[in-house]
Design a protein around this nucleic acid. Structure first.
Length: 319
RNA sequence: CCCGCCCUAGCUCAGUUUGGCAGAGCGGACGGCUGUAGACCGUCUGGUCCCCCGUUCAAAUCGGGGGGGCGGGACCA
């Protein structure tokens, strides 16, 4: 794979890359660059988590070394439970990610607390704490935090630790949802003054919820790895999917972000009275037919739920 | 440490003045209409009124105590 091919694979389905120029430069100069995503261990891995995992798989194909940070202390600071519970969940998450399709040989799993409690880490974090204003730290957490109403001091440590992680783990490219943008920018801005290189950031979009609204923890409008195949099918069938519209359409998004990266051909079984079976090589072809209303939402949904279940099945078994 | 304000359904809040069946909107569930969903229409669902004690025939409401949150003041050695 040459640099141009790597670039287009890495760029696929991203919301933004900060910056493309730096990424090209990295690919030209470094044999095996290091990338990472930090995940708060979660009892219910959902399609949002798997979206960044898809990007890690792309990066692995492009020759990257992948580090997955199981961020137990971050989860703890974000009030996701006791450290003991969180660590148990982290073990389970690790198995799910491997089963999902990450290459075992090229993936390092790192538990946050293994290195985040070391003296030099803490001391440098204190140094960083003198450089970052409270306002800036708080704003960086706007899209991340569990508790927005009465934020705790612990939450202010979160972006500082994330910055330290990127430095300490020697990360060239940090992957995350676009919700991580402000934290990543904070890291880029401050790492050089702590004598670390500033990372390149790849941000994935935040998917539209199944009801067509923003994903919301109170509404559970998404698909979990812990959902049974029947539940997945039911959720897809119940999902918002206006005929002919491809913008903010959760079903189209699942097809684009979760299914097409994992397959070469997408087929739809359709009754003869509705036009017979269909076959597509790219998501753009599907979008074209859907826009022209030559592909009905119900036929799309049936096929999407089948493909999605096939993709989720290996990881689901590990729960 | 002192002062003021706030806490009611999953969420946002009304109700507290003057004690009298616990309310609305949003959300959620189900059905109808749709070859999906949504929208629309219909039905249903909603509670430790922060906790405890007291007064009263009767307390979300009044009194006392406690907890949590927010804002301000004071201290500035």
């Amino acid at each position: 794979m040459d640099v141009q091919e790597k670039l287009s694979l890495i760029k696929r389905n991203t919301e933004e890359i900060v910056t493309k120029e730096e990424l090209r430069d990295l690919l030209e100069k470094k044999e095996e660059p290091v990338t990472y995503v930090g995940y708060e261990p979660s009892g219910s891995l959902h399609l949002g988590h798997l979206l960044t995992a898809n990007k890690l798989i792309d990066l692995q194909k492009a020759g990257f070394k992948v580090k997955i940070l199981l961020a137990d202390l971050h989860a703890y600071l974000n009030e996701k439970g006791s450290l003991e519970e969180i660590r148990k969940t982290a073990e389970m998450n690790k198995k799910c990610f491997l089963a999902y399709g990450l290459d075992k040989e090229k993936t390092d799993f790192i538990l946050g607390s293994e290195f985040q409690l070391k003296d030099d880490y803490i001391l440098e974090m204190y140094e960083l704490s003198l450089k970052v204003t409270l306002n800036r730290a708080k704003r960086s957490m706007d899209e991340v935090t569990r508790r927005k109403q009465n934020p705790r001091v612990g939450q202010m440590l979160y972006p500082l630790m994330q910055t330290m992680d990127i430095g300490k783990l020697g990360i060239d490219v940090a992957v995350g949802g676009i919700d991580q943008r402000k934290i990543h920018m904070l890291a880029r801005e401050n790492l050089p003054s702590l004598d670390y290189k500033k990372q390149i950031s790849i941000h994935m979009p935040i998917l539209t919820g199944l009801d067509g609204e923003k994903m919301s923890s109170s509404k559970e409008n998404w698909i979990d790895l812990s959902d049974t195949s029947e539940e997945v099918k039911q959720k897809i069938m119940d999902a918002y999917c206006p005929q002919g519209e491809i913008e903010n359409n959760p079903i189209i998004e699942i097809l684009r972000y979760h299914i097409f990266p994992r397959i070469d051909e997408f087929t739809i079984e359709r009754k003869e009275e509705y036009g017979g079976n269909l076959s597509y090589k790219t998501v753009e072809e599907v979008e074209k037919d859907f826009s022209k209303q030559e592909l009905h939402p119900l036929d799309l949904k049936k096929s999407v739920s089948n493909y999605l279940n096939k993709i989720l099945e290996p990881a689901r078994k590990k729960i």
